[in-house]
Amino acid sequence: MKKNSAFLRKFAKRKASVISTFLLLILIFTAIFGPALCKRYHPNHQNQAERFAPISRDHWLGTDYAGRDIFTRLVYGAKFSISVSFFGVLAGGIIGVFLGLVSGYFGGVSDNLISRLIELLMAVPGLLLAIIIIAVMGKSDFNTVISVAVSVIASFTRIIRSSVISLRESDYVKSAYILGASDWRIIFTHILPNCISFIIVTFTLNLGTALLTVSSLSFLGIGVQPPNPEWGSMISLAKEYMLSYPLGILAPGLAITIFVISSSLVGDGLRDALDPRI
């Protein structure tokens, strides 16, 4: 209980992180429940008679070049943008954590092989790596998740590996080994629970990067596929009209900016609050 209260006090000191937490929760809530609440317009319903309609009571953010309600598409876009980013980071995190545990605990040949793999992944920029994966596997929502997962594996593996190397020399790990506990029991019972804080921070910090990757792929036309609305594809479709009707770009662009900055600030706040040295 004292640890939880100390964590909350440390986190609350960073006002930017607290505000970012609320903004991030609002966006996540919108992604989960927003489509069920936006029943007035279908995100792909076109009405040429209302092309580029201004902001009004009927259209809170106006309409785009095809007469589609921008607010509805923005809400549905949150569902695809955030969910693809979340599951991509989750899948990549699971793989990265497992590789980090194996590499840091066993060392030797497994450490060398995994380290070379991580160096290879880090040698290629994340977005370029995602584009290569899409080019090889083909365009689909599932392949977009895979591309995001592969692009974040290295960050999880490096963090967990360094943590495991320091933890495996601790007294309680050595005591468990002397008492006859198996290697995997030590890893999942004694080492992994002490890495949870690093996993949470790394996951949060990677969410913003993952969403940028998803939006960039969709902007290029190789990410989330039409007719599914996605923030990056909304910007791509509206770029031809950005001078005459800039709201089509500003709305999804602002949503992406808020999510990326919020996730980064929340991650920074969690890192400071969970760091025992502070």
Rank of each mutant, 00 (worst) to 15 (best):
G232K: 00
L207F: 12
I235H: 00
L212A: 11
S218L: 04
R161S: 10
I131V: 15
I132H: 02
N228M: 13
L127W: 10
L192G: 05
L211W: 09
S151I: 05
L192E: 02
L127F: 15
H190W: 06
L217W: 04
V164E: 03
R161T: 13
A149E: 11
C195A: 11
I191A: 08
S170R: 15
A181M: 03
T204H: 10
L128T: 13
A238V: 03
M234S: 04
V148P: 02
V124I: 15
I133R: 09
K174Y: 03
R161A: 04
I199M: 14
K139Y: 09
A238D: 05
V173M: 04
P252S: 07
S233N: 05
M137V: 10
L247E: 00
G208W: 13
W184F: 15
W184K: 11
L217T: 06
N228C: 02
F198M: 02
V173Q: 03
S218D: 08
V145C: 05
S175Y: 10
P226Y: 12
I146S: 02
P246M: 04
N194K: 13
S216A: 15
I186M: 07
I178V: 15
S215N: 14
Y172G: 01
T189S: 15
I178A: 14
F198D: 14
S244W: 06
L179Y: 13
P226F: 11
P252T: 03
A238K: 06
S233V: 00
S140T: 13
A135P: 01
V224F: 09
I199K: 02
I191V: 14
D171Q: 14
A210S: 10
L192T: 04
T204W: 08
S244A: 11
S197C: 03
A149I: 07
A130D: 10
L250T: 09
V136Q: 10
I222D: 03
P252W: 04
P246A: 01
S147W: 05
T144N: 09
A154H: 13
S175R: 07
I249R: 00
E169R: 12
G180S: 06
T213M: 10
A123I: 12
R158K: 14
V124S: 11
F142W: 12
L250S: 06
S162E: 12
S151V: 03
A176H: 05
L205P: 04
G221Y: 10
S170L: 10
M234A: 04
I178E: 13
A130M: 02
L212G: 15
K139N: 15
V152D: 02
A176G: 09
E240C: 00
G232Y: 00
T213S: 09
L167W: 10
L167A: 09
V145Y: 11
S215P: 09
L129M: 15
D183M: 00
H190I: 06
I235N: 09
F203D: 06
P226S: 12
S147M: 05
I131P: 04
V148C: 05
I199D: 01
L217Q: 06
V152W: 03
Y177D: 11
R161K: 15
R185S: 14
G208P: 11
I134Q: 05
S166E: 14
K174H: 11
D141M: 11
A181K: 04
F142P: 00
S244P: 00
I134N: 07
S166T: 13
Y245S: 13
I191F: 03
V201W: 08
L167D: 07
S163P: 00
